[in-house]
């Protein structure tokens, strides 16, 4: 607790911003993402739009894995379900982005919940396998077959470049508009996730993650809470998929392969599990690293751009060897060092 600052109520103690320094940081930090699109290159604006979209998806993984302890290997297909659902809502019903996001989230939450049902009998790796099965069944078979077009609406679909928030009211079309829209949605989901973490449901998720047997003896319904985690996480990933489809303007099953699942795990682990700020840092670092690595290779060694994933992989491995708990843990150590400086302890 900083010297001279005291909590005067329990409500104060639970705030997202609790210390004067946090209020100052917030006031100074908030204008940055709001002014950034006016000073960044168009390419970088697009990169950050993608960062915001992926943060929402990785927050979903964060709820399922970091909070509830469930290994889910279907991030790709959950995003795909969100994308195909949103595409149908926008193309066929013209309801706009917000209803499309909502319905995409709900449909994905339902599918996630169904594939989380094995959690009733088994846990850990065995549940992960059921989600991996969904990944392959849906992406390698279901979305590629025209026989199922009545359900998914077609293997490849395009979305209009200008879409209203609700029907055709307030259209989102330019890169800057997409940036701000994705930013607002990301902030909403980040706050919702933080709220989940600091209330009873988040605590029960974490209790089940840490010690499910004692959690049950202490009154926590394991099955219900695990399914709730699947549904909440699935909803977020579905919304992220819907935004991803709108951002790219085109969908095809290849976009939602197991690669996207693994990439989101890298983002989560690199940032540091257990904290929303870890998710934000992890996704931002991975996307910027990808972007600048590719740009450097294009400028310096244009014939070697295919090696980008190799460099990317090596950097990730090195970072995780240096600090296995991710960037948040490294920043925590730095903060502790600065707090004690110039003394060792």
């Amino acid at each position: 607790m900083p010297s001279g600052e005291y909590f005067t109520s329990y409500e104060d103690r639970m705030g997202l911003l609790r210390w004067r320094i946090e209020y100052v940081a917030f006031a100074l930090g908030l204008p940055i993402p709001l002014l950034a699109p006016f000073v960044m290159t168009g390419q970088l604006v697009s990169v950050f739009t993608l960062v915001f979209i992926f943060i929402i998806g990785v927050l979903g993984l964060h709820v399922m894995l970091s909070y509830a302890g469930e290994i889910v290997l279907a991030q790709g297909v959950f995003m795909g379900i969100g994308a195909y659902t949103a595409s149908r809502i926008i193309n066929e019903l013209a309801l706009g982005i917000l209803p499309a996001m909502l319905i995409a989230g709900l449909v994905t939450a339902f599918i996630a919940l169904v594939f989380g049902l094995p959690a009733w009998r088994v846990k850990g790796f065995y549940v992960a396998i059921s989600t991996l099965a969904l990944q392959f069944i849906a992406i390698q078979f279901f979305f590629r077959r025209s026989e199922f077009a009545v359900i998914h609406g077609g293997t490849q679909q395009s979305l209009p470049s200008n879409i209203g928030l609700v029907t055709d009211v307030i259209t989102i079309g330019s890169a800057t508009e997409e940036y701000f829209f994705a930013f607002v949605v990301m902030v909403v989901f980040a706050v919702l996730t933080m709220n989940l973490s600091r209330t009873g449901i988040g605590r029960m998720f974490r209790a089940l993650h840490e010690n499910d047997l004692s959690a049950q003896v202490l009154g926590i319904n394991r099955f219900r809470n695990k399914l709730m985690a699947y549904a909440i996480g699935g909803f977020m990933v579905g919304v992220s998929g819907a935004l991803y489809a709108i951002y790219i303007g085109f969908i095809t099953p290849e976009f939602y392969s197991i690669d996207i699942t693994l990439l989101q795990y890298v983002m989560l682990l690199l940032g540091g599990m257990g904290r929303v700020w870890g998710v934000i840092l992890g996704v931002t670092t991975v996307e910027l690293l990808n972007h600048y690595l590719l740009e450097t290779l294009i400028n310096a060694f244009p014939e070697a751009t295919a090696l980008e994933p190799v460099f990317f992989g090596v950097i990730i491995i090195v970072v995780l060897i240096v600090e296995p708990k991710g960037i948040m843990a490294a920043l925590g150590q730095l903060k502790e060092y600065l707090r004690k400086w110039p003394y060792a302890y």
């Binding site: 709220n195 989940l196 600091r198 009873g200 449901i201 988040g202 605590r203 029960m204 009154g219």
Partner: peptide, 22 residues
């Protein structure tokens, strides 16, 4: 604190919507 708050949460039976909206 968190250990004890966890079982307190069980006693209160938290509601998802009120938790999310806080």
């Amino acid at each position: 604190l968190e250990n004890i708050m966890t079982t307190r949460a069980v006693k209160q039976r938290p509601n998802l919507l009120s938790a999310l909206l806080f």
